[in-house]
Design a protein around this nucleic acid. Structure first.
Length: 472
DNA sequence: ATGTTC
């Protein structure tokens, strides 16, 4: 793969073969996937062949190998020019994302309460494969209400306060959800799982603000140094997974009827303006609302635990997805166009004064939340004016070692002991799962964030460190 | 990520 350095933080994959646009990789020499033996830059080039793609196939500094599209990839297609939508460009965990809550509490006030708080969280946060959630829905009709209403419906049903919605991307509810486009199996998998964490890299952490890079912006976000926070990282569970599975198959079968050829079957796609394209976007929006409601429910579980052990409330800082395709307007080559922007393991970071921001965040830009790995830092970022890649940045540290390799090389018991000895309380579910998520399996999140900021994708506002980890 | 193998 020909990868040409253009600046310290930007690399170009020139057009070759069937590529319609170049690949642009925001990274550093040290973080480039080729340095770790990962094939994701070939996936960046493959994505550049999709019908209707505009400007470039982008990769963020945490890019790594994924299903068809790389994780840490951004691709936008022009809807009115035959642009496609692809489930592989969203990922299996539709609207997977992060929610950050700020406690009215500082670290020194937490000391003796941390253990009992973690015990309660450990007992009340449902997690692990196939596990049911905290909200047992009455029936399929109520699940439809969730799929249409998202976090807004959860709040209206008493699970949260109206102010929460002002701090959710899309105010907690995306439009145009079409629950009828979900298979019976997707509905069945979703019915019992609302208010559950899942497994893999999903977590609920108690964190402390370790460093503030911009006091004024942090204050607007409701954050200050030494403050206790809760970060929740989860998505749409089995429901979203089933939607992706169903529509990859549908599109794989339908693709040839639209004359579309792709270099990898995992890039299955159809035009946005097609029966299958509309069906997928409707199903995806429904799964998105499920994920938004899911994070709302888990926030309520955390609030109950904090209320009981500390008396402190938890104010929502923000809730943002990093696996989604969104129809957005962007200026391309001097003309405003409707684009289908795929962000897979990439986070939207709206710049200051963007019309989709709430009024009180207009001056700061969008809060952007980046979960680190267990035992390392997480970050609060803000969107910046003039950012490339359709206002997107990274989504995490980025895996460099497979789950299998990590489980072979890391002992879960020892990892738990290491974390505990550093003052981080751990409430896991499986020793293997813990080992698979060892920090050694990931890039250095601090280097990833510095690369994202250096590339002009975002700016740092605050860094958080964990003091308690609840793992699926 | 995921009832980790239709």
């Amino acid at each position: 793969m020909d990868v040409i350095p253009e600046t310290r933080y930007r690399f170009r994959i020139p057009r070759h073969g069937p590529m319609r646009v170049p690949g642009i990789v925001y990274s550093t020499r040290e973080l480039l996937p080729e340095a770790t033996g990962d094939k994701s830059l070939e996936q960046v080039a493959n994505v550049a062949t999709l019908p209707g793609i505009v400007t470039a196939s982008y990769a963020m500094p945490d890019v790594h190998w994924g299903y068809g599209f790389p994780i840490g990839g951004v691709a936008a297609t022009d809807v009115s020019a035959g642009g496609v939508v692809s489930p592989g460009g969203v990922g299996f965990d539709i609207s997977c994302g992060v929610r950050l809550l700020a406690a009215q509490l500082d670290q020194d006030q937490l000391a003796t309460a941390l253990g009992p708080l973690m015990d309660t969280l450990g007992h009340t946060v449902p997690r692990g494969l196939r596990r049911g959630g905290t909200w047992q829905l009455a029936d399929r009709a109520q699940l439809y209400d969730v799929l249409l209403g998202g976090a807004r419906y959860a709040v209206e049903a008493g699970h949260g306060v109206p102010r929460d919605l002002a701090r959710c991307e899309d105010a907690g509810q995306v439009p145009d959800a079409a629950p009828g486009r979900l298979s019976a199996r997707a509905i069945e998998r979703g019915l019992g799982q609302l208010g559950s964490l899942g497994s893999g890299n999903h977590f609920l952490e108690v964190q402390v603000v370790d460093e503030v890079f911009d006091e004024a912006t942090a204050a607007v976000f409701g954050l200050h140094r030494h403050q206790v926070c809760v970060m929740i990282h989860t998505g749409s569970r089995g429901l979203g997974h089933q939607v992706c599975t169903d529509y990859v198959r549908t599109m794989d079968e339908a693709m040839s009827r639209y004359g579309i050829r792709v270099p990898d079957r995992q890039l299955a796609c159809v035009p946005v303006n097609s029966a299958q394209g509309h069906a997928y976007l409707g199903a995806m929006a429904a799964a998105t609302n499920f994920a938004r409601a899911n994070r709302q429910l888990l926030a309520e579980t955390a609030r109950r635990a904090f209320e009981r052990h500390t008396g402190a409330g938890l104010e929502l800082v923000y809730d943002v997805s990093h696996n989604l395709a969104m129809i957005e307007s962007h200026e391309v080559d001097g003309r405003w166009r409707r684009l289908c922007v795929h962000r897979k393991g990439a986070t939207r970071a709206l710049p200051p004064h963007h019309p989709d921001l709430p009024a009180d965040l207009a001056a700061t830009g969008q809060p952007t939340l980046i979960p680190g790995t267990m035992g390392t830092s997480s970050y609060v970022l803000a969107g910046v004016t003039g950012s490339p890649a359709f206002h997107s940045t990274c989504h995490g540290a980025g895996r460099v070692r497979s789950r299998h390799a990590a489980a072979r090389e890391v002992d879960g018991h020892r990892l738990r002991d290491d974390l505990e000895s550093r003052g981080i309380a751990v409430r896991g579910t499986s020793w293997r799962g813990l080992a698979e998520e060892a920090p050694a399996a990931y890039k250095d999140v601090d280097a990833v964030i510095d690369a994202a900021e250096g590339a002009g994708l975002c700016r740092k506002v605050a860094r958080l460190v964990p003091v308690g980890v609840v793992k699926g």
